[in-house]
């Protein structure tokens, strides 16, 4: 695309900038509620100026055990991510390198897991967790989310390994390297960016998830997403307090996606091929 007039570039940039700002307005609104005094968030007519305050944060910390909520979210999402990668990366590698005619079929099977509406498996899983006594704990959520995520990781890593010629591993194997050595020392380092993309997506999925923990965890194990929902239904919690609490749910994941944008783009576009 050569020879484009400066005028057109400026026009395109202004358009896209305006659209992006429009997309970000609701986020700004949410963030701003946390710094407004309660009587200025909603007023008829709504007003655009306010005197900033940190009262809402004080309120949020007074009502919620924010640290424990964030810790639950972290345990669930890091646990899910680690387990999904431990299961999914070797499986993706094996399916990509296998010469068996069943290998592509298995890869598509893992992709198909993506289609499952959670509710179809969640109810029997709920009963299963109740029977073995894990219902209400972090483990119940981690076990279920790992199933969904490791299938996704297997498919993603299958396509990453598939795009990588096997020559280097074969050379290492003929040089007397062990099978595990060829996998860990030769194959895995070359797909590092793919693994980071997978980890980012697993983190995002589990951190943002609230349907599964809502039913699978109890009060002391609930993550911040579930707390936000229960807080919403309560009368004495104002919108500002909710906005303050929402900071802890949205800001970490948005920052992660912004700083790891390269991997986000890579993962989102790789997942469709």
């Amino acid at each position: 695309m050569a020879r484009v007039s400066t005028r057109r570039v400026v026009f395109e940039r202004v358009t896209i900038l305006l659209i992006t700002i429009l997309f970000l307005l609701p986020v700004f609104w949410l963030i701003s509620t946390a710094y407004k005094p309660s009587n200025q968030i909603f007023s008829a007519p709504p007003r655009l100026t306010f005197e900033p305050t940190f009262d809402q944060f004080r309120q949020a910390f007074a009502i919620f055990d924010v640290v424990s909520l964030v810790r639950s979210s972290l345990v669930i999402s890091i646990g899910t991510t680690v387990l999904s990668l431990l299961l999914g990366v070797p499986a993706g590698y094996a399916l990509a390198r296998s010469k068996s005619r069943f290998a592509p079929g298995f890869a598509y099977f893992f992709l198909a897991i993506r289609m499952i509406p959670a509710i179809a498996a969640l109810i029997p899983f709920y009963l299963l967790m109740r029977d073995i006594g894990l219902l209400g704990t972090w483990w119940a959520v981690i076990v279920f989310n790992t199933m969904l995520n490791c299938a996704f990781v297997t498919w993603m890593m299958f396509s990453y390994f598939k795009a990588l010629p096997p020559d280097m591993e074969e050379a290492a194997l003929t040089d007397g390297c062990t099978q595990m050595g060829a996998f860990l020392k030769v194959a895995v380092p070359t797909v590092r960016s793919g693994m980071i993309a997978c980890a980012l997506f697993c983190m995002m999925f589990s951190w943002n998830d609230f349907l599964h923990p809502m039913f699978l965890t109890t009060l002391d194990a609930k993550p911040i997403s579930v707390a936000l929902l229960t807080a919403y239904g309560t009368k004495d919690i104002t919108w500002g307090t909710l906005g303050a609490l929402a900071h802890f749910s949205t800001i970490p994941i948005v920052l992660m996606a912004l700083f790891m944008n390269r991997y986000f783009v890579q993962g989102a576009t790789n997942g469709v091929q």
């Binding site: 986020v27 997403s225 936000l228 929402a246 949205t250 994941i253 996606a257």
Partner: peptide, 11 residues
């Protein structure tokens, strides 16, 4: 622009 897609859907 990708921020809406990363934010918690509940929020």
């Amino acid at each position: 622009l990708l921020i809406p897609s990363t934010i918690t859907p509940l929020v």
